[in-house]
Structure formats: structure tokens, C-alpha cells
């Protein structure tokens, strides 16, 4: 039985790892990930009147609301981008980030029953949440293109820039930021349930510190320094610059935001890994 020592498939020890992504294990559970994505996606519209229309309903309603409140009543500028496109693109990207963050931050609390009874890689859930948000974003992006073509047909000129090619990076960045912050907070909410309230409140505050309903160019110079710390701000600005050719293209801020995204994601992964093995005893 000497050869026994090396051939164990599962070894359970009290040690907790900090940074490690067990990709091999996640691959084994790829069917589960697919099913979880489907479960998340379908549960949005099962037994509803509007069905899958819910995926575009929310950003459309927000867009109309913003056009009315910020565009007409408050008379805020949109960098000469058509209002509908300006608000829709902002809402769409912001919702992607915010939904990912919020869903991920509830990973342990919402799945406590499941996690307490069966083992599978806990990262399955955040992966399903972010992918699900991504599919929602794709649908909304298609709607944005419809608006886009509509304005083109009505003679609005857009100066597309080559930066449009980096769109996948913008999306990836938002995904990393949302997931990173989300799983970082999820580790804390198992112990402090009141953080959940803070998350939804904090997100709605942060939205107003992000150029969702106004362009960066309309901010007074003395407040601009605040925006330099917000890693989401340059992503939305860059996206609009790429597609509509208006607004700011500040590469320094974008580079900063890229670095922050990666760092936040890695930190999130560390806290998540550290927490997943014992959260059952704490939650």
C-alpha cells in the first residue's frame, strides 16, 4: 500500500488557500455553470406577462425617465449625442456593472441553503451571475444599435473611432470590477448582514458619481478630481467616445481604471477563496 500515498483524489485539510483558481475543477463543473446561467436567465421572465421583454424594459424606462428629468427639466447637456443614445448607453453599461456587483455580493447569503448541503466550486455562482448579466447586456446592446441606425437614417453624423475595437475590453473591465467588488463584499456580508443595505444604497450613490446621466465635460473642474478615483467613469466615457465620437478620451484615466479592475478582481478572488470553506459556520 505504499503507492497509496500519492494517489488521493481529494485531500481535505484545515488550510485555506488565498490565491488560487482551481480551473481544472471549474472545468469539471462546466455543465453546472451552463445550467446555472440558464436558471438565472429564465427565472427573470418565467410566469411574467412581458416575458423576455423584461430584459429591455428596464433600461428603456430609465432612458425615458432620464430624458424627461435630466434632459428636459434640468436641461443637462449630453455632449451633443442624441439623448436617447446617451442615456441608454450609460444605463446599459451601468446596469451591467451594478447587477453583477449586487448579485455577486449576495452569493453566500442567497445560496446558504444550497452551499450548506452540497459541495461544488462556489465560484460557479458568481460566474453564472456575471455571464447572465453579460447576456442581458448583449440584448440591450442590440437595442442600442437599433437606436443608432434610426439616428443614422435621420441624418445624424457619428464619427466612429478606431477605439470601437476595444469595446470587449470595456465590457471585460466592467465585469472584473463588478465581480471583484461583489465577491469581496460577499465575504463580508456573511458576517455583517447590514452591509447588504449599504450595497444597494452605495450603488445608487455611485451611479451619480459616474457619468451615466451627464457627460464628464459638464463637471466643474474642481470636482473632476473626484472622478479620477472612480474606475467605472472612464469606461463609460470611452464607450461613448468610441461609438459616438464625442466626449473625452482620457487614456491615462482609462489605464488607471484597467489596473484597478485587475487588482480589485484579484483581491476579490482572494477574499472569496479564503471565506468559502468556513462561511457555513458563520452565515
Amino acid at each position: 500500500m505504499t503507492s497509496d500515498k500519492e494517489t488521493w483524489d481529494v485531500v481535505i485539510t484545515p488550510k485555506r488557500m488565498w490565491l488560487g483558481l482551481n480551473l481544472k475543477e471549474l472545468r469539471q463543473y462546466k455543465d453546472l455553470i451552463t445550467l446555472m446561467i440558464r436558471r438565472e436567465f429564465v427565472s427573470v421572465y418565467k410566469q411574467t406577462i412581458f416575458g423576455p421583454l423584461w430584459f429591455v424594459f428596464q433600461p428603456l424606462m430609465s432612458t425615458f425617465l432620464y430624458m424627461f428629468v435630466f434632459g428636459n427639466i434640468a436641461q443637462m447637456g449630453t455632449d451633443e449625442i442624441p439623448q436617447a443614445l446617451f442615456y441608454f448607453s450609460g444605463t446599459m453599461l451601468w446596469t451591467f456593472f451594478a447587477t453583477t456587483l449586487q448579485k455577486c455580493s449576495d452569493t453566500f447569503i442567497n445560496n446558504a441553503g444550497l452551499f450548506g448541503k452540497v459541495y461544488f466550486p462556489r465560484l460557479t455562482m458568481p460566474i453564472a451571475y456575471v455571464t447572465n448579466a453579460f447576456f442581458t447586456l448583449l440584448i440591450q446592446f442590440a437595442v442600442m444599435l437599433v437606436f443608432y441606425v434610426y439616428y443614422l437614417a435621420n441624418g445624424v453624423q457619428f464619427s466612429l473611432s478606431w477605439w470601437i475595437l476595444t469595446t470587449p475590453i470595456y465590457i471585460l473591465q466592467l465585469a472584473l470590477l463588478g465581480t471583484g467588488f461583489g465577491i469581496m463584499i460577499s465575504a463580508l456580508t456573511t458576517k455583517y448582514h447590514d452591509l447588504r443595505n449599504l450595497v444597494s444604497f452605495g450603488l445608487s450613490l455611485l451611479m451619480y458619481a459616474t457619468p451615466v446621466v451627464y457627460p464628464i465635460s459638464s463637471i466643474p473642474v474642481r470636482w473632476k478630481v473626484l472622478f479620477q478615483f472612480n474606475p467605472v467613469a472612464p469606461v463609460i466615457e470611452m464607450f461613448r467616445y468610441s461609438f459616438f465620437g464625442k466626449g473625452s478620451c482620457n487614456l491615462k484615466m482609462w489605464a488607471y481604471s484597467l489596473i484597478v479592475s485587475v487588482v480589485v478582481f484579484l483581491l476579490g478572488l482572494m477574499t472569496f477563496n479564503h471565506n468559502e470553506q468556513t462561511f457555513v459556520d458563520v452565515v
Partner: peptide, 28 residues
């Protein structure tokens, strides 16, 4: 602990083969 739901405080568990645990019927 054997199902890897919570980590032990001390000691080691080694297992050979895939583990399926059924701690509750109808989980998930």
C-alpha cells in the same frame, strides 16, 4: 467535513474517487 462543505479545524481527510454527498434530498 467529508463533503467539503466546511473545513476541519485539525486533521486530514484523504479520499479516492469522486464524492457525491446527499445531505438533503432535493438540494438545488
Amino acid at each position: 467535513i467529508l463533503s467539503q462543505i466546511t473545513a476541519p479545524t485539525e486533521g486530514v481527510v484523504k479520499m479516492r474517487g469522486h464524492v457525491a454527498s446527499l445531505l438533503e434530498v432535493g438540494t438545488g
